[in-house]
Structure formats: C-alpha cells, structure tokens
Design a protein around this nucleic acid. Sequence first.
DNA 1: TATAATGGTTCGGTTATCTCGAACTATTAA
DNA 2: TTAATAGTTCGAGATAACCGAACCATTATA
Lengths: 266, 266
Amino acid sequence: MTKQTAKTTKRSLDVIDTIQTLGGATLDELTGELEIARSTVHLHLQTLLEEGYLTKEGAVYHIGLRFLNHGEYARSRKKAYTLAKQTVTDLSDRIDEEVEFVVENDNRGILVHESFHPDSHFPTKERHISTTPSSAGIYYYLHSVATGKAILAEFPDEHLEAVLDDWGLPEQTAHTITDQDEFFRELEEIRDRGIAFADEEYVDGLREVGRRVIGPDGSVLGAIAIIGPKYRFTNERYTSELPEILREYVNDLETEISDSYLDDYR
Amino acid sequence: MTKQTAKTTKRSLDVIDTIQTLGGATLDELTGELEIARSTVHLHLQTLLEEGYLTKEGAVYHIGLRFLNHGEYARSRKKAYTLAKQTVTDLSDRIDEEVEFVVENDNRGILVHESFHPDSHFPTKERHISTTPSSAGIYYYLHSVATGKAILAEFPDEHLEAVLDDWGLPEQTAHTITDQDEFFRELEEIRDRGIAFADEEYVDGLREVGRRVIGPDGSVLGAIAIIGPKYRFTNERYTSELPEILREYVNDLETEISDSYLDDYR
DNA sequence: TATAATGGTTCGGTTATCTCGAACTATTAA
DNA sequence: TTAATAGTTCGAGATAACCGAACCATTATA
C-alpha cells in the first residue's frame, strides 16, 4: 500500500515551512496561503507556539528558537561532522578560499559547516565576518553543486532515482545540467576522477571543486567543496591543484574519522 | 476554556524529544519509553523520516538535519541577534573570558551565541577550539544563570508567574536560589543594579555576570553574560570591573540595534 | 464618531484519521 | 532451531481534527 503518514503532523510541519518561506506571517495570511479553515490554522499555531517551535511578535508568527536546540544537536551528534568542521577551516586557511561541508537530507543537500572566508563576501571590512549571518542549514539541489554531485555519484541507482523523482534537475543557471542522460555521464566521470566540478551550475560566476567523504563503513557521510569566483579558479589551479589539495585533506579527514570511530571500541 | 492543542502534532514532537534525550533510539525503545502502541510510534517515525526531521542509521532513529535549517533561520532572522553575536566576540576578546548571548524561549533560556574562548575548556591546544562542538541551542533554567535572571528581572508579574509554574526553581547546585521570596528579592536587586550575578548557581566553580538587552520598543531581547572560573572572578573584578565593561558593551549594542532598526524605515 | 478591517478565540457537529492490538515477514543473535 | 528485534499492514473503534460561524478586542479608515 501507499505509505502511512500522520496528516495532522504533516499539516503542522506545513505551517512551519510556510511561515519560514513567507518570512513570518499572520493568522489570516497563513489561512490564505494554506487554504484551510482559520480555526484549524489557529489550532496548529497554538500548539507550536506552546512548545517554543514558533514565537509571536505582535500579530506575526515566526520560527522559534527551539529549532536551534534540535539543529545544533543534529550537527554535533556525529563526531565525523565536528572533524569535518576542522577540515573545512584548515583547508580554507591553507588555500584562502571558501570551503563547505554538505550532507544529504531529504534527498537534497544541507550545508552543515562552512568556512568564514573574509574575502568571499566582503572584500575588505573584517568586522563583517561575524555580522554576516551564517548560511548553515540552507538546502541545495544535489545536482547543481559540487558537493551534491560528489554525493550522488556514490548513491546506488534506486536512491539516485528517488532524488530525481523528488526534485528533478531544475535549472539554476544556464550551465546547470538539466538533461538526465548527460547527468548520468557526468556522474560516471566524477566516479572515475574522484572529484566533482561545478562550473557556474549553481550561481553565475562561481566555480566549485568537490569530493565526497566516505565513512568507516563505506557509506557516504557527505562532501566537501572549495568554492570561489571563476576568475580565481582557472587553468591548472582549477583542474588539478585545488583537486589535489582537496583530495589530500579529505583523505586525511577520512582516516581521522575511522580513528575516532575505532576509539569508541577501546 | 482550556487551550486547544493538536494532540497528534504534540505526540510527534514528543517522539522527537524522546529520541534526542535518548541520544537516538529504535522503534521498540521508543514504544517502551512513550507507552503507546508500536504501530502508532511507527506512523510518527515514518512521517518525520519522510520530511527529513529524522534520519535512520541501521535500526536507530536520530534527529535529522532539517532542524538545522529552521534553527539557523531562527538565529539569523533578527538583525539584533547577529549584532549580539558581534558583541559577544568583541567582548570576549576584550576581557579574555567566555561570553554568551541568551534568549528566552518556552519560558527557559536558550543559548543563541557564544564566544569560543580557548582557555575556558581547553587551556592549551588551539586545535580543539573548532573540534569542540558548539553548545548553542542548549536550554537553561532562567533562575539559575545570570542571563536568565537578568531577563526575568524585566518580565511583568504574570509572565514571571508562568515561568515558575512551568519549571519552578529546581536546584542545580548548592547555591541555586530555590526559595521564591528570596528569588523575588534577588530580582529586585538586579533591577536596581542593572546587573545580575550568578555565583555557582548553575555549575560549581563558575561565576557569571549578566545584563539584559533591551530592544528599541522597550521589550527584552535577551541577555549577555560573562562566564568564568571563580578564582578569576574575585573582588573588584567580579563586583565592579566586569559589570562596568559589560554595561558599556550592552549599551553600545542597544544603540546599534536601534540604529539598524531605524535603517529599515528609511 | 462611526465603520471597516484584522486578529484571537470558542463552539458543536461531522467526518477523517489516529490509535490500538494482532498478525505476519525479514533479519540477526543465541 | 529458536528467540529476539525491526518493519509493516490491517480492520475496527474511539478520538480529535476540521470546518464554519459567531463573538470580542484592537486598530485603522472614512
């Protein structure tokens, strides 16, 4: 049969998502958006409010900080993620470029750790580093970013199929791969090379070099990518230097992860 | 009448909380813990799994990274929080001690931003700074920490009452204030002084100096505290120097916040 | 000042669905 | 081989989710 799901819970989660995409919303705005009875929306809002999953400012409902509790827990839960964080900062320091660690979730990619490379967003003012809000937690379509492609290249066929069913290959820029056959060939190449490139496939002007991170049990933990402006990612630096350094750092990370994994059994 | 709430949603949220407190759990473990039918637990797990709010490793269910998406959103949503982050790091650099920014949520305090002061946990090795998992997102009982007390001192009576009804004054250490009358007198003093102290009331050996942050509309946005070992928080440094510096930084932050608030109307 | 608009809340009746327990399979451990 | 654990589906009964309408309170508008 078709999979059983708790519809009331789904509706509550819908309310949460809607509030986030609207950037805060009132009772009536939500009623309009969700197309359900006002009293029903009210019921869900009350429930989520009471638990701290929402907060209210005047008449506007917003995402509550309780999510931060679970979110940070999820991020700190795996030792491997924390080790990856260190790799991200180390690697970023070494090459002086932005670095990200991305994990699959809900058949998309979620940004778990990022370096705060001053140059990348604010060329000069150092003060802005900490004022720039973190973009951790944002979702990527896997096919359009280097981390995502590196992850997909390791997925078994049925999982890959599920990803395509759920999200397809939406066009993000003129360079995004939107043809399925072409995408399969691309994944083939990535598997051979051990490195995924994304050349302005996610955002115009940005090039990315990514590599998947494999856990001690052989499963894909996530992926790390180096990201920077096209004009700094050219020739050998783009095609071989950065890939080589990335490979080195990811390999080291993988041994650290399996070492720490072994520690738990001693 | 008594407040209406969606019980199915509450149950799903219960499942989430239980999984987090157990640090991951199997279907049968959850069934035992929650004391509901196994098929019911299964239904909730399926629903949350499908949306990315849970992930599964073998037979063990864990908190999913989707929470990070909402959590980081909630943290970045208010400009004031991002400005507070900057104050936290600046202040920590200035005095060389741990600093925190805490916001009320669900009648408790939630840690939103913290400095990563090397000394505080790992006296020497610098490498550990980034390997130490962030403790952002953790909940405090408001009465036992300096930030919480500073916040409570600004609450209207009925809100304060709600806090006591929900959580009481649980003892955390031998120095925690657990008597209501005594606690009211303490809040009185904090209001007069503009500074809240917590002297080993949360953890043995730790002293804290806190001050609430007021928003442009007069409401309490949260609080900032300086935290450190008792042996470094003594005499005038504890009773007047650190309070003065804290007052200065919080006042500056408050003007920055109202400036940025005014910017939105220009 | 009257009037409209918006938000918050409660109510009861109908219906959807949540919940339970049992049953069955698959996988792994003893 | 047996026991233990996990995953899954089923139908029946009980519950509570959902709706629409109504009401009050507050704020904006005429």
